[in-house]
Write a protein that binds this DNA or RNA. Sequence first.
DNA 1: GTATTGCCTTTGGTATGACCAAACTTAGAT
DNA 2: ATCTAAGTTTGGTCATACCAAAGGCAATAC
Lengths: 237, 237
Amino acid sequence: MDIGNDTGRAADSVVAMLEAKIVSGELENRAPLPAERELMEQFGASRTVIREAISKLSSRGLIETRPRFRPIVRKPDYATVLHACGNVVQHLLTERSGIKNLYDSRVFIERALVREAALAARKEDIVNLRAALEDNRNAISDSSEFYRTDVAFHGVLYRIPRNPIFPTIHEGYTSWLAPQWDRMLRSPERNEVNYLAHKAILDAIMERDPLAAEEALTNHLKAAWEFVRVTFDWGEE
Amino acid sequence: MDIGNDTGRAADSVVAMLEAKIVSGELENRAPLPAERELMEQFGASRTVIREAISKLSSRGLIETRPRFRPIVRKPDYATVLHACGNVVQHLLTERSGIKNLYDSRVFIERALVREAALAARKEDIVNLRAALEDNRNAISDSSEFYRTDVAFHGVLYRIPRNPIFPTIHEGYTSWLAPQWDRMLRSPERNEVNYLAHKAILDAIMERDPLAAEEALTNHLKAAWEFVRVTFDWGEE
DNA sequence: GTATTGCCTTTGGTATGACCAAACTTAGAT
DNA sequence: ATCTAAGTTTGGTCATACCAAAGGCAATAC
């Protein structure tokens, strides 16, 4: 297939060399890249290929570029992956089926997460969940603040497996799945509903009842979807 | 943050316009892009920015480029997302912890998948699983063929939720998670072990026993990891 | 009539050189 | 020491040129 992997170009060897220098630390993280005219001397290439290489590295998330500013070296991390996906994911969300698929996958993951939580959550996890839930309760009257604490509550769930991939996935969901509607469809009444849903989830987790936790989570997310679907008059799926 | 999103450049407007023409279908899928010299006339830009735009679109997976060949228009799909991630993911897998995290996430997902399968698999899913298992059995003596059927068996699990996101994730796992060792560490003996593991999973699914299915799957994948870990003398994690 | 061969044209990849405007540096003024 | 203004560096863009490989075409061979 080889999308975006233009093998055989001169720029690629430059990319490879710069890539190596970045991962090896020879080019320090957060440090500015040398000037283009210096790089062309260093690699014996024309500015054309140097700039192409820089563009590619930027796409791969290995350097940050702002127009007219020195590119900044950036060691790749999980957030980088997320960002690389983002550009493409957005195209899949123009169709409703794309949104639905993404949302369903979220339900699937979170179901497994709460199940896991009920079975294996540590004391500190429970503490964090209680704190997050408390934040929910205190923010019921402030929809904007409630949104933040809502996301945070789910975030705690994603952190329970202690695998940095999951918080990254969570970030993906929250940034891709229509923060637009999420924000505009909130009200103290709905916040209260969601607070209670979170409470039910936490209760089930604390009772170490995976089935109940899964069910509470499923109800919570399905209800949220229903609300959005009906509000926007999306018809049945 | 804005990685790979070089706002403010002339190329970006060209990217946007081409992007629009691709998603709208004005530029047909699988059709070659117009020649660069034609695009520069069409957009009133220099070849420099045209080429930069093409490079960006290529990185985003909206066009396929091979050196010296006409770029090919490509409507974004789930595979495109996968590919966009691939370039970056690879960097996270240079450390062992990255591999472990990815593998753990796979175990997590597949546990949920087999659980789901035990609870909700349709007749056709069972049929597919049986067929895949049968393929396993017939390929025990041919390690290369067994690898293929092994991947296929797991693939059936990912297709059960009827959400295209999951097969995509599966492809990610199989392409990123060391197909190198997977291939070289196989033998008829290990194939037999894996066949039996698959059989145990399917049996549990057919008995509609989610707990047993989850356990069988976990044993299967944990054992595979252990085997790799010990073989490569990776020490404890 | 089809397949093969060889020539010409098109087109992508790269190199130069130039220019501009914005960022950066530095020396001078307050 | 701080601020300011001039000078320098440097990224973004354009125009042009050249090369080699891909594509197209036509004469040739079978």
